[in-house]
Design a binder for these strands. Sequence first.
DNA 1: CGCATATATGAAGACGTGTTCATATGTGGT
DNA 2: ACCACATATGAACACGTCTTCATATATGCG
Lengths: 116, 116
Amino acid sequence: MVDDDVAALAETFRLLGDPNRLRIVLSCLDGPVGVGALADRVGLSQSLVSHHLRLLRATRLLKAGKAGRQVFYSLPDCHVRDMLTNLIDHMTEPHDHGTDAENDDDGRDDGEVRLR
Amino acid sequence: MVDDDVAALAETFRLLGDPNRLRIVLSCLDGPVGVGALADRVGLSQSLVSHHLRLLRATRLLKAGKAGRQVFYSLPDCHVRDMLTNLIDHMTEPHDHGTDAENDDDGRDDGEVRLR
DNA sequence: CGCATATATGAAGACGTGTTCATATGTGGT
DNA sequence: ACCACATATGAACACGTCTTCATATATGCG
């Protein structure tokens, strides 16, 4: 995987890393939503939503469709939806210590932050 | 989905949104890697890698296992890997614009009409 | 026990970015 | 045409955070 692909991938992740932007994407899971309705649902100003939508569109995390003077946004393909559900699964998953080749001798392998 | 879950989800995405951190995670795809080896592979200082690893550990994007005086990092479960492959698939997927030849790196309005 | 190795932590600065306000563009109705 | 509505854009600021440098902690070896 080339350096440039990693950057693009990171950029996509970065966009989803903002809570407001993520809420915008999640609000589009049910189907196409207009910009005004989006602003209402996530409780943000129309301007801010539009700014975010521009970025989400650029990375193709959302696609836009016009109908009259309204613009509806929705998910472009199933990968985005699958990825979201995957990460949600990951977070709701209970601590599972699965297959780790390297095991420490004292048996405490949890990634908890140690304070002195 | 509650507000707090969205924040946690966004935080996880945010961590993957940094190219260096993403490279660190990707470098762990093949199996457990020590911190020093990671720093070498991604070309970052040991200190910086450690800083990033702390965050990745906290969100359980990576898990740590000690072996002697070395600490090996690896993916905690398959969801992280699946999510990565999903988004990679999304990016490598051809854009469904048919014969449209607009430039793509600019967030321009694509004018596609798609209603529910 | 000291010393070298391996990783973690703390503080500070440079940089990016999310947000707001104001304004522009586009679209339909009367 | 004008006006009301819907969305997009631009500039500026406040804020976070990625990075570096220095140092601390932990572990194994002779």
